[in-house]
Nucleic acid binder design. Structure first.
Lengths: 343, 343
DNA sequence: TTGTAAGCGTTATCAA
DNA sequence: TTGATAACGCTTACAA
């Protein structure tokens, strides 16, 4: 059974394509009679308009794309991504847009961008961002960036990673800790933090700023940096490495909750008492509140970030020009995973 | 700056549209010279092919849609949805498809279906499924159902809700509990469980089957049904209602982990000792393992469900005909939230 | 009130 | 090796 098109209806109902199109899109300018007859035959023939043809004609799709830096499974398993997407989705739903998840296509982010039939993109924590920007510009649809180094003439949404990180570290220092490990998200830089980009860069800066207020710095002995995969397993593994080394720390400051929780689990498995190792995370994922001890961490407004990103993009799509770079605040959430030294 | 099209390139490079198209899609059948010249001018002009026009011509989009029963925020905040989408996304990534999230458009699921430029749909836990099926059929693209009452000639993926629920209830009964509340997901049926559909229906059946093995049934006194919203808050609220009633139960069997956790939190707030109220959930969301006491629950293979769904849909899109109704197994996961009566 | 026809940017068929 | 041209299904000036 071939697809029935607007032509078939026109023929069967005895009108032209134009009239049929009107019956669907501007019924008010047609006599009721006509509309009814057309809608009836459409119903009868089982007609469903073709969204692609419509887009072809109107020049827009009613869809926005979220550009993922990695495969969908890798990204969506980050516990804060759903909350971010909820924010984006809220605005989309409100404005009648649908959402497309756009991971690299056969390994190529360029191909992904070129293939996605969307009215605009939200990019999420891009890595190879310079090359990607070129492709995006070329693609010719509006886009905005989230969680990457902002670009002059492109709207951007970021959080105040630096302040958040600084507060986290300060809190640990205030509790008297002086043997500290910074648990960083593995980058391509293998610990060369001077070369960190975007989020990693800002968080690292925050940690260092706090240390410096106490006259401290990375010293390969008491204060050290260690990188791990941004997963529960990565956190656990890193913890084992840390604990095996000489000069055990009394506190760990992690760049992500999921790593912090992994580390804490590893510690529990090794029968290390809660008080022996203080921990502070980053992100405030839902699980952070429910683990035991509940994780002290830096909260960021994931949902609001998504909302703002979507609103900015839709505005841009609607032709408004506002290249503001927004920076949303973070907040230190005190729970039970940081202990005073010597208690 | 107007969008540059294949025509502009053809003109500038001194070839026809056809040749330009070949240079991109079948470069091997053109002399290197030609290809290079065309690709160069394309680069120079900043050309990016239009995916919509391509779809218009080829008749496919390289995108599949996941049809959500409610708004994106409502659905994606269910902690097992990301895992399901990860499964779907894995197959999509592997096969070079992208994923579109399709919530009701301005409240209308019909509009959503008609507007989505996709090659096929995965429907997720549909409610108004009969009406929706009509629209989907009319839309003319393949689709498969997940978590709804399966339809004869449509591929379907479900889990063995009934067995899972039965095992959950049996476990509670084995531990000696005889005062039990079934915490159900709020339906439109207001407790008339005979009218439950799909997932609710099967889970309820499982619970009742287990009870019946012990010669028990809903009796408005010792064994009762209560409905609540499928959220943490809904679980907490329901618990308060339960606890206020006469004949407090010793165990609660919940249709969802998130409700179970909400209930447990409420209990803790009311200073009720862990042993006073046993709890078993359903779904095995990530949080279930990390709450305290860790939640005994029924695990289902969310990720595999997504994979299977995506594979089935892609097969169908590729013209294979296989209307199998798959039923994936569930598994009772024993943790620490169920206590023996009298201990 | 309704119809004609152009146009959207590709791909694909067929011919040169 | 390349080029005309039709086709995809719809929207929208413009015309009648």
């Amino acid at each position: 059974m071939k697809k029935v098109s607007i032509n078939d209806i026109a023929k069967k109902a005895g009108y032209s394509k134009t009239t049929v199109s009107f019956a669907f899109n501007n019924p008010e300018r047609l006599p009721e009679q006509t509309v009814k007859r057309i809608l009836d035959t459409a119903e009868e023939l089982g007609y469903s308009p073709d969204p692609i043809a419509r887009s072809m004609s109107t020049g827009h799709t009613g869809t926005i794309g979220v550009l993922f830096p990695q495969s969908i499974p890798d990204v969506i398993r980050n516990p804060f991504i759903p909350e971010f997407l909820a924010g984006v989705g809220e605005i989309c739903t409100r404005e009648g847009f649908t959402l497309m998840l756009v991971p690299p296509l056969k390994g190529s982010i360029r191909r992904a961008i070129e293939n996605a039939a969307v009215d605009g993109f939200i990019t999420l924590g891009l890595e190879e961002y310079k090359a990607t920007m070129v492709v995006l510009r070329q693609r010719g649809v509006p886009f905005i960036t989230v969680d990457s180094d902002p670009i002059e003439d492109i709207p951007a949404v970021n959080i105040d990673d630096e302040t958040g990180a600084k507060e986290a570290m300060l809190h640990v220092l205030e509790q008297g800790h002086r043997d500290i490990r910074i648990l960083a998200i593995r980058s391509g830089r293998e610990g060369h933090y001077e070369e960190y980009h975007g989020t990693l860069h800002y968080r690292m800066n925050g940690y260092l700023a706090a240390l410096s207020e106490y006259g401290l710095e990375l010293d390969r002995k008491h204060i050290r940096l260690i990188e791990g995969a941004c997963t529960e397993y990565g956190g656990a593994e890193s913890f084992r490495v840390i604990w095996k080394g000489r000069n055990r720390p009394t506190a760990i400051v992690a760049m992500s909750d999921i790593m912090a929780i992994g580390a804490l689990n590893a510690a529990r498995e090794m029968h290390i008492a809660d008080e022996e190792i203080s921990m502070v995370g980053f992100d405030d994922i839902p699980m952070a509140a429910s683990v035991n001890p509940a994780l002290t961490t830096v909260a960021q407004p994931h949902c609001k970030k998504g909302q703002l990103a979507a609103e900015l993009l839709l505005n841009t799509i609607n032709g408004e020009v506002d290249n503001t770079h927004y920076v949303l605040p973070t907040e230190l959430v005190l729970r039970n995973s940081v202990f005073k030294v010597g208690e």
